[in-house]
Computed example of a mutant assay.
Amino acid sequence: MEIGPRLLRFPLTPYDGDTFSYESTHGNAAGRFGVIFAGSGAITSKVVVENLDTDRLGAFTRK
């Protein structure tokens, strides 16, 4: 996963089904967080990055 204007890279590690985790190592590093891919069938329509979604800013939806 790449985040931010400097495109910081965070490898995703499989956790359970459509849930992955990554280790936060930059800025306000606070450990391991979840990334959840949701959708219908083979199409992912929503991705939620757990630690970015505390203020509802970490959910990304394909329209």
Results as ranks from 00 to 15, higher is better:
I36M: 06
S40P: 04
F60P: 09
S24Y: 01
N28C: 10
T25C: 05
D55H: 08
E23H: 07
G17T: 07
F37C: 03
T44D: 08
E23A: 11
R62A: 15
T25P: 04
A30Y: 06
N51T: 07
K63R: 14
R9T: 13
V47E: 02
M1F: 09
G39E: 02
G58V: 02
G31R: 02
T44N: 10
R56G: 14
H26P: 00
E23L: 13
R56P: 06
P11D: 15
A30K: 11
S45W: 06
V47K: 00
A30R: 15
E2D: 13
D53I: 03
R9Y: 12
L7D: 09
E23Q: 14
P11W: 09
H26M: 09
T19L: 08
P14V: 07
S24E: 14
T61P: 03
R6Y: 10
F33L: 02
F20D: 05
T13K: 09
A59L: 07
A30F: 10
K46E: 14
L52H: 06
R62Q: 11
L12W: 06
M1K: 12
G41R: 03
Y15R: 11
G17A: 09
E2P: 07
F37I: 05
F60L: 15
P11T: 09
T44K: 07
F20T: 04
G31W: 00
A38N: 08
G17I: 08
I3Y: 03
F20K: 00
K63H: 15
V48N: 05
P11N: 11
D55E: 09
R6P: 07
M1L: 14
A59G: 13
T25G: 14
V48P: 01
T25Q: 12
G31T: 02
G31V: 01
